[in-house]
Design a protein around this nucleic acid. Structure first.
Ligand SMILES: [Mn+2]
Ligand SMILES: [Mn+2]
Ligand SMILES: [Zn+2]
Ligand SMILES: [Zn+2]
Lengths: 144, 144
DNA sequence: TAGCCGAATTAGACACAGTCCAAGTCTTGC
DNA sequence: GCAAGACTTGGACTGTGTCTAATTCGGCTA
């Protein structure tokens, strides 16, 4: 069972999904999951920290990082590595790709359904593909 | 005129290429270019710092970063963002893609000549593509 | 309800990539 | 040789992310 980014998950729905992923649903983890899944965005760790503490009581930086790494390990979220100074966390774990606006830093999803990549070379013996990431770097035309 | 990664550039050849890219060829810049272009590898800033100071006299960390950013700006090299903790610098500026071994951290070039990507969505008005990066994350099979 | 115990959280120290700055040194043109 | 600008440098600083040891939480049992 997969969780889709979607506004207004109930606490109970979040608890169930955490359990289904083998994650013990604590207060902080539910709060963090709520922020991740109710905004359908790509957030960095400190954006998340700010949003969580905005809504609610104090959650520490250590817990935010612990939780994000746990969610990654349990494949509840994925990371997008596109900015040399910070990682973005993506609530959408479907195979998909990204536009990255190099001026604004904004990330936008590209559905993988219609995308076809041909001509990739054969992998060496005993090596296996873990995933293919396509990043289309874009910018607004007037900005030279 | 383009520089190809190639062992054993002469000092004179490096000076010429720097000049052709609008870069004033100082001692340190020539040393750094030498290390970048004579090893046909993807290096991080501190690998480069170590290699430069290995061969020769002292070049400071500040100069290595200044120079890498200058080379990037002048399009003498490109950067590969694939590891959340450091940037790799790539002496190959031809359009190409990468295998990234998630266990060893090793980066390998994929020639773009045979690669075809179809199905990318239309870009919004006034937005232009700066480049398409494909990263194939791989690992050795036995490592689960 | 009280007490126990492993799991989770926390503040703050730490690691480390990368930037900034002000002072010093090298080039280049005259 | 001299001045002016360009470049380099050590070291302070910033920001992201990790680690640790101490505390707190929460689910369980008696
Ligand atoms: Mn950089
Ligand atoms: Mn990380
Ligand atoms: Zn995404
Ligand atoms: Zn490359």
């Amino acid at each position: 069972m997969t969780l889709k980014p979607h506004p207004n998950y109930t606490r109970g729905e979040l608890v169930e999904v955490l359990r289904n992923h083998g994650i013990n649903p604590t207060h902080q983890r539910i709060e963090i999951a709520y922020v991740l899944f109710s905004r359908c965005e790509h957030l960095s760790a400190d954006q998340l920290l700010a949003l969580v503490n905005d809504r609610n009581s104090e959650t520490s930086k250590a817990t935010v990082y612990n939780t994000l790494n746990l969610f990654l390990e349990k494949k509840l979220i994925r990371e997008v590595i596109v900015d040399p100074s910070k990682v973005f966390y993506d609530p959408n774990t479907d195979v998909h790709h990204h536009f990255y606006d190099i001026d604004t830093g904004e990330l936008t999803d590209i559905d993988a359904a219609d995308i076809e990549v041909s001509g990739l070379p054969q992998l060496p013996e005993g090596v296996v593909t873990e995933g293919v990431d396509i990043i289309v770097r874009i910018r607004s035309e007037q900005a030279v």
